[in-house]
């Protein structure tokens, strides 16, 4: 392992955390813009240092663990949440030759696996808090994330079939002629919705659902442990956006600009779209969310797999 790649492994996660922190500011400013108000604009130029102020405040908060909570699990939960997101980033190709950790030829499977583990963070947090609102949030999260994982994987199968690989770099290379968003439009839509549900963002933010459950699974969390959930959520948004950019929008590919810049640009557009959705949409009800998943999105993703396979077979037979 070269020194450069070692540095990347060490510094990469920190850069990501920094990025996620800045994203909290971006989201608040954008929401402010769309909601006819200012948003945080006092700390630093345009309020840019607001995340620093927030981070400092959150670090100095009392590290409170409720006496009724299951101590070890209560501490473990946010760590899992943070780790799974950061690990997933390791295998996403930033350019043709640049990864944080390295090129993995089952990269996509690895990311799906990590997302699967990410459910534990929310479920364990809800369970270990030993509080009713947290429990309800944890229950919702478990049901939601497990069901949406099913067709998140299925919706990706189309991409995998077209590229013939789980390797993310191969997948990007396969989009040299045409971005996969065109042949895989349906799969893209399903993946986008599943991604929203995975990161529990509006309109799928039921595990938190502040109008109903206070704060849902992290009701009892405060200080830096809450901060970890918070940052992990934003890192999760970046992750899903980066995945969408990689799988459907041609990754680093693009004319004129540097590849890394293209990648960042595409990811950024998807992130902003996520924020726009939050500004625009109300929240689904729990049973409606499950019905949408199992009755609409699952059949659609199966249909997508079948259609892709049929087209591929027809093309393969002379």
């Amino acid at each position: 392992m070269t020194r450069a790649s070692l540095a990347l492994v060490v510094l990469g996660p920190f850069a990501l955390l920094g990025l996620a922190t800045v994203l909290t500011w971006v989201e608040r400013r954008l929401l402010g813009l769309w909601q006819d108000r200012h948003g945080p604009n006092r700390v630093g130029p345009g309020g840019l240092f607001q995340p620093v102020a927030d981070g400092t405040k959150i670090l100095f908060k009392q590290d409170w663990i409720p006496p009724f909570a299951d101590r070890s699990v209560f501490i473990l939960a946010p760590v899992i949440g943070m780790m799974t997101v950061l690990l997933s980033f390791g295998v996403i190709p930033l350019t043709d030759t640049l990864w944080i950790a390295g090129n993995l030829n089952v990269g996509l499977l690895f990311i799906l696996g990590m997302m699967g583990l990410g459910v534990y963070a929310v479920v364990l947090a809800g369970w270990a808090s030993n509080s009713k609102y947290a429990l309800l949030g944890g229950m919702r999260a478990a049901a939601q994330m497990i069901s949406y994982e099913v067709f998140m994987g299925l919706s990706l199968l189309g991409v995998v079939m077209l590229a013939g690989s789980f390797n993310l770099r191969t997948i990007v290379s396969a989009q040299a002629g045409l971005w996969f968003i065109v042949p895989q439009g349906l799969g893209f839509c399903v993946f986008l919705l599943a991604g929203l549900a995975e990161t529990h963002r509006l309109p799928f933010d039921l595990p938190e659902g502040e109008n109903e459950l206070g704060a849902g699974f992290h009701t009892e969390y405060s200080g830096m442990k809450f901060g970890m959930f918070f940052i992990a959520e934003y890192a999760g948004i970046v992750l899903i956006s980066a995945l969408i950019a990689t799988l459907y929008l041609g990754g680093w590919r693009g004319p004129w600009l540097a590849p890394a810049l293209w990648f960042a640009l595409k990811t950024g557009v998807v992130v902003v779209f996520f924020i726009l959705l939050r500004a625009a949409l109300p929240r689904l009800r729990y049973d409606q969310l499950m019905a949408l998943g199992w009755k609409v999105l699952l059949p659609l993703s199966l249909l997508n797999v079948m259609a892709t396979a049929t087209v591929l077979m027809l093309r393969a037979t002379p």
Binding site: N211, R278, A280, P282
Partner: peptide, 16 residues
């Protein structure tokens, strides 16, 4: 009401 069903923005316009 819009806020209660999870819509964040309308309440700002209406308060304006």
């Amino acid at each position: 009401m819009a806020q209660d069903v999870g819509q964040l923005s309308p309440v700002f316009y209406m308060f304006t």
